[in-house]
Design a binder for these strands. Structure first.
Lengths: 208, 208
DNA sequence: TAGACAAGACGCAACGTTGCGTCTACTCTA
DNA sequence: TAGAGTAGACGCAACGTTGCGTCTTGTCTA
């Protein structure tokens, strides 16, 4: 068993470890696989994504993939990585309207434009076919994202900009639900005007 | 059941509606397949759903399936049939609040409880992996459903209960988006209180 | 301290399994 | 008799596993 796997932290760049290390897996191979998945998902789509294709693209043996990832979905979950936190951590402007406007626009753009958004959409699709995957997606990624989504509201409450008894859960659903709905179900675009509208109406009804 | 006369005409038990074939296909086999898909999807889930399994369960030869359905997804699209129209056609109470309350609750229950809802969730998952399927799902089912979703609002506008310049599209997204979001993404339950809340807040901000 | 050794990651290649979609052979029925 | 039905073999593709040989690197010992 690899003893450096005690946490998710992997040694990178620091040491010049290109390939096999007695106790560690090859960071190079790992990066190659995750990059390949990322690229291929956008290029060929999830339906045409195969482990063999990933291996070929990554220049890695299929067995190397199976050594470290139990399944294709695990690669995707891994590849999603910290992208959610990176793209979707709400900034703080000290003003609810600005915070929400920026965050909702970021969510919309992330979902519709970014590679990581494509990854999340694909994983959501898998989750709809497999409750175990759904559970993993939620615990490994979405739960923390939901906390981030709450953040601007929580801050506004503590600033007194929103009533203390506001149901943050419902509020998040009302703000983000329509965006996800468009992206995942209707396939309509999510222009800035749409998210602005959501923010404006939300504020009109909740702001003191 | 399905007797919508698209390009997909089949002989009904009584009538002699033939499109190209002199002799009609077996309605019994067709029903058996659609029922089998419906049952199996709930029993084993989409991930474990196979054509061979469907054929066995239906007591039908695999070839019979391939003769009439190009792919597994086509069976699902077919099996969804008119379930949307049947479950999700908004009733008319002459009062917007009642109409919306009933409709949103119906949508929530359909999505989370019914077999047809499981079918729609599964198809949504497939759609997230294949844009061609997404397009078909939308044109063959969702477009008409969206019209139905608009209906209560349209009626309220003509009654003068809502302003004429209301953007029906956004309104539908705001009302249904949070429900779909919960069902498809977060997996949270969608209790009556949740939908009532959506209706109440929607009315508070739009009613004259 | 050099060289042998051990541990294990890696690539290559072949394998058995599964499900798909096609095909043949035959039966049934209007 | 044509067309729809059943039964099931077939080839294909991808999956996931396995054996084998190579390479790298830490450790042990002469």
């Amino acid at each position: 068993m690899t003893d450096q796997a005690s946490s998710d932290i992997r040694p990178d760049t620091a040491g010049a470890r290109h390939s096999g290390n007695r106790y560690g897996r090859s960071e190079q191979a790992r990066r190659a696989v995750l990059t390949a998945v990322d690229d291929l998902l956008v290029e060929v789509g999830f339906a045409a994504l195969t482990i063999e294709g990933i291996a070929t693209r990554a220049g890695v043996a299929k067995q190397t993939i199976y050594r470290w990832w139990p399944s294709k979905v695990d690669i995707l979950l891994d590849a999603l990585g910290d992208d959610l936190a990176e793209h979707l951590t709400p900034a703080e402007h000290g003003d609810l309207e600005q915070d929400l406007s920026a965050h909702l626009a970021a969510v919309a753009e992330f979902l519709t434009e970014s590679d990581a958004g494509a990854m999340l959409r694909a994983l959501t699709g898998v989750a709809l076919h497999d409750t175990a995957i759904a559970e993993r997606l939620r615990t490994e990624h979405l739960a923390r994202q939901r906390e981030r989504d709450r953040l601007p509201l929580r801050r506004a409450v503590s600033r007194g900009e929103l009533p203390a008894q506001l149901d943050l859960d419902s509020a998040v659903d009302q703000l983000l639900g329509p965006i996800y709905y468009r992206v995942l179900v209707t396939g309509q675009p999510v222009p800035r005007a749409f998210t602005e509208d959501l923010v404006r109406e939300f504020l009109a009804r909740h702001r003191d």
